[in-house]
């Protein structure tokens, strides 16, 4: 069944302006997907899914805006294809609480607070519960690195990942956004559900 599904999306792009995009290319390789780095908007034409990786959201936002149409091209890409955002990626896809620096792409209806756990000494790893009617409930591991928090979300957005009482991952249509890093533990499940 899985091998049949894996063939559905042929090529997945990983936004490669800054951050740990290499780790996501490796995870995609591990689940049998071909992938390519995306550094210019025209490269989106070739792919059928996109990962916006972790890194520094301010930096990635800044670099996206160096190319005139990059932001609008990603927004129209999102109308047809799934996007997975981790940490900085989720920040860029959602709305931001009281943030003057980064303006989000508004792809997921959720309100995010950056660095909500504090600075690096407050970074941690934990077990995260995944729950959704699309798959069997399970636990995966993830790291929260200067991580954001999901403060609230709209009706079109469903929570699917939980750490203690907090929502740490949401799904909005075909898009997924998470505040943590499963790729640090080489966890592949979220990549599989997003692109299958």
């Amino acid at each position: 069944m899985r091998s049949f599904l894996i063939e559905e999306i042929k090529l997945i792009g990983v936004l490669a302006l800054q951050g740990n995009f290499q780790s996501h290319l490796e995870i995609l390789n591990k689940i049998g997907k071909t992938s390519k780095e995306i550094k210019f908007s025209k490269e989106l034409d070739e792919v059928e899914g996109l990962i916006i990786p972790g890194g520094e959201s301010t930096t990635i936002f800044n670099l996206l805006n160096r190319e005139k149409n990059f932001v609008s091209e990603i927004k129209s890409f999102a109308d047809s294809f799934p996007i997975l955002g981790t940490c900085a990626g989720l920040i860029l896809m959602s709305q931001l609480k009281n943030d003057k620096i980064v303006k989000s792409l508004d792809i997921i209806d959720a309100l995010i607070e950056r660095n909500a756990y504090g600075r690096q000494i407050n970074s941690f790893s934990a077990s995260i519960q995944l729950k959704n009617n699309l798959f069997q409930e399970r636990l995966i591991r993830g790291s929260f690195i200067r991580a954001p928090k999901i403060i609230s979300y709209g009706e079109s957005t469903e929570p699917f990942a939980f750490f203690q009482n907090e929502v740490v991952g949401v799904k909005s249509g075909k898009h997924f956004g998470i505040t943590f890093h499963p790729e640090i533990f080489k966890e592949t499940f979220i990549h599989e559900i997003c692109f299958n």
């Binding site: 490669a16 302006l17 800054q18 951050g19 740990n20 995009f21 290499q22 780790s23 972790g54 890194g55 520094e56 930096t59 940490c87 900085a88 690096q120 970074s123 941690f124 790893s125 790291s143 690195i145 200067r146 890093h181 640090i184």
Partner: peptide, 17 residues
């Protein structure tokens, strides 16, 4: 036991200045 998180921040700084 926090070494993983320390290295993870370094990972997030890749491809930058």
């Amino acid at each position: 036991d926090t070494f993983r998180e320390k290295v993870a921040l370094a990972e997030m700084l890749k491809g930058g200045v």
